[in-house]
């Protein structure tokens, strides 16, 4: 019998190819026209030989190495984080429509981060910086609130979704109020609400990377527990799972991931919902496969969306949240339609 939980080779290869193309596109496209061959030559030189006899100007080199490359990596990490968090939430809530955005955890993270910034609190905790810790607490509180409200009204998909939307709306309102009171410019609020990738250099990448690696590893390891949770909780216990522990760990890690992603990107909608579904439709429903593939496809999706945002109307830019929602919202409707009766 073949190994049923190994990620299918074909799917893995295709996913990495897509991510590779996304990387190439994001390095080659942008507001500045730089000949692609020269870029290749430069990349080759800087990675494999120490020679710097490139035909690119200093500015062009900086654009590639300090703007396009980190922005690709940041987009990939944010996309992977949101997708993995989304699959985690879907597993824990046994609900295909759970996602960081719809559950209110993204909004909670935003509010937490803003509160810390506005009040200038110092609440750093263990390895977490103040802003990340605030965002993490906010995300956690939001998810738990949504879960409690929904369980008091019947634990159905609809009730979870509605309570998530209510929590998100409430928290976003608090957030907008706080930002307005503190004279943050309208553009900043708007940019935050719609989601954007802000980078200059590798700073943001370095913030998000350790959290991503940590949380991804944990959630990946709990993939088997999430598979058990697809049974009833009692069955999962009888089979040797620890559903309560799994729920706590996965919700915490997914919240942390969301929190850190949101603290650099604002509210990017639908990635966490759409990507796990695409993976599920394409390769199967085991979380041990969904989680790693969601990470790769999520990374490719968001970084491609960003490349599009940067180059479609160059030298102007589109906010990336507009693109993800533009693709995500119809997809969301499609899922609702396809799963008629089952959720």
């Amino acid at each position: 019998m073949e190994d049923i939980f190994r990620i299918p080779r074909l799917a893995l290869t295709v996913s990495f190819l897509i991510l590779g193309f996304a990387a190439l596109a994001s390095i080659c496209l942008g507001a500045t026209k730089i000949p692609i061959l020269n870029i290749f030559e430069f990349m080759w030189d800087s990675f494999f030989t120490s020679g710097v006899n490139s035909s690119l100007s200093e500015i062009e080199k900086t654009i590639i190495m300090e703007w396009r490359l980190p922005r690709f990596v940041l987009g990939a990490l944010v996309g992977a984080s949101l997708s993995v968090a989304g699959s985690g939430f879907q597993g824990v809530f046994r609900n295909p429509l759970a996602d960081p955005f719809l559950l209110g955890s993204a909004a909670g993270a935003g509010l937490g981060a803003t509160l810390v910034i506005v009040t200038d609190l110092n609440v750093s905790f263990l390895f977490l910086g103040s802003v990340q810790f605030g965002a993490f607490l906010g995300a956690l509180v939001a998810v738990i609130a949504a879960a409690i409200i929904s369980s008091s009204s019947g634990r159905t998909t609809a009730s979870l979704l509605l309570s998530g939307v209510a929590v998100a709306a409430f928290l976003t309102a608090c957030q907008t109020y706080l930002m307005q009171r503190n004279f943050v410019s309208i553009q900043e609020i708007y940019g935050w609400l719609i989601g954007r990738l802000l980078t200059s250099g590798w700073g943001e990448v370095l913030i998000i990377l350790p959290y991503f690696v940590f949380c991804f590893s944990i959630i990946f390891m709990y993939g088997r527990e999430l598979d058990l949770l697809r049974m009833s909780e009692d069955e999962s216990k009888a089979l040797g799972g620890s559903p309560l522990q799994a729920k706590i760990v996965v919700i915490s890690c997914a919240s942390l991931m969301t929190a850190v992603a949101v603290s650099v990107s604002g509210l990017i909608a639908f990635v966490g919902l759409v990507i796990p579904h695409v993976v599920r439709l394409a390769v199967g429903a085991s979380y041990r496969i969904i989680i790693p593939l969601s990470a790769i496809i999520g990374a490719a999706f968001l970084s491609s969306a960003d490349t599009f945002a940067r180059s479609a109307v160059a030298p102007a830019e589109l906010p990336i949240g507009v693109i993800t929602a533009f693709i995500g919202a119809p997809f969301f409707v499609l899922i609702l339609k396809l799963s008629k009766g089952t959720i």
Binding site: G30, A31, T32, I59, E60, T62, I63, W67, R68, Q187, S200, R310, A314, P315, A316, E317, L318, P319
Partner: peptide, 11 residues
């Protein structure tokens, strides 16, 4: 009020 691409500002 267009949103500029940062690399465009640079170049």
């Amino acid at each position: 009020y267009p949103k500029l691409s940062p690399e465009y500002i640079l170049s």
